[in-house]
Simulated assay, not measured.
Amino acid sequence: MDIKITDGKLLEKYIDTHYLYTQFGYYEFFNNITVPEVEAIVMDTIEDIFPEPFSIRKHTCKYDNRFNFEVNIETKNIYCLVEWNYMKECYKFRKGDNAFTYFESYDSLIRHIIREFKNVNTDTDKLITDCTHLIKAIETSSKVDISLDYLINRIKDPQEIEDMLYGDLPF
């Protein structure tokens, strides 16, 4: 591929291949990348145009999607709120009046929600149903053709739930 670079000094610049690998990895997950997208990623890397780190992005992100659900714990209902922006990879979760907890991925968000209610007396089936609806809402908001059925199948499997709750296996 012949990428036109107008500044000769940029031709001598070191390229962070780890950044390139990460960026191409996102596209590989979706199974499609176009030549202009490859050119844009390479040029952004050469010109030091990187996305904001998550520590900054989580506060500047425009959370344009919202999902509410309630968890019944004994005689009390706990109101939960999830907000996210799929394309910017920022997710946040609030349980009751607590402060928001921030996440870079929907996997870690779902895992956190399930773990948050692991030691309380609650209707696990309803929680799994709410998480399933949340996953479908995230899938719909993605604006790309993705399927998160694998994640739904994982949270519906009792052994996977046990691993999420008590195991240290990556999710």
Rank of each mutant, 00 (worst) to 15 (best):
K143R: 13
S55Q: 08
E47W: 02
F29N: 07
C80N: 14
V120T: 14
L148T: 03
Y166S: 01
F67V: 01
Y150Q: 04
Y86E: 12
K143P: 00
E52T: 02
E74Q: 12
T101N: 10
I138K: 04
K95G: 08
T34N: 06
A99C: 05
F69W: 07
D123A: 03
R57E: 12
R154E: 15
L165R: 01
L11I: 08
E28W: 03
M1L: 10
K4E: 12
L134E: 09
D107V: 01
G167K: 01
N98D: 15
Y79K: 14
C61I: 12
F50Q: 12
F24K: 12
P158F: 11
R115K: 15
D16M: 07
N72L: 14
T6K: 11
F24M: 12
T22Q: 06
E52W: 00
E70N: 13
D149Y: 08
C80A: 02
Y19F: 13
D123I: 05
Y21D: 13
V144A: 09
I49R: 15
A99I: 04
F54S: 11
E116P: 02
R154V: 04
K4P: 00
N68F: 15
V71R: 05
L11Q: 05
Q23V: 01
C131M: 10
T129N: 09
E139N: 03
K95W: 07
D123W: 02
F24W: 11
I56Q: 13
Y166N: 13
S141Y: 01
R115N: 12
F69L: 03
P36V: 01
G167F: 01
H59K: 08
S108E: 14
D44L: 03
Y19W: 07
R57Y: 01
I15K: 06
S55R: 05
D2K: 14
I113H: 08
Y21H: 14
F30D: 06
K126I: 14
P51Q: 11
Q23S: 12
F103G: 11
F54H: 09
L109V: 10
I138H: 05
W84P: 05
E70A: 08
I146S: 07
N65R: 10
T129V: 07
N72M: 14
Y79T: 13
V42L: 14
T6F: 06
E116R: 11
L151Y: 04
K4H: 04
E89V: 00
L169T: 10
H18G: 09
P36K: 06
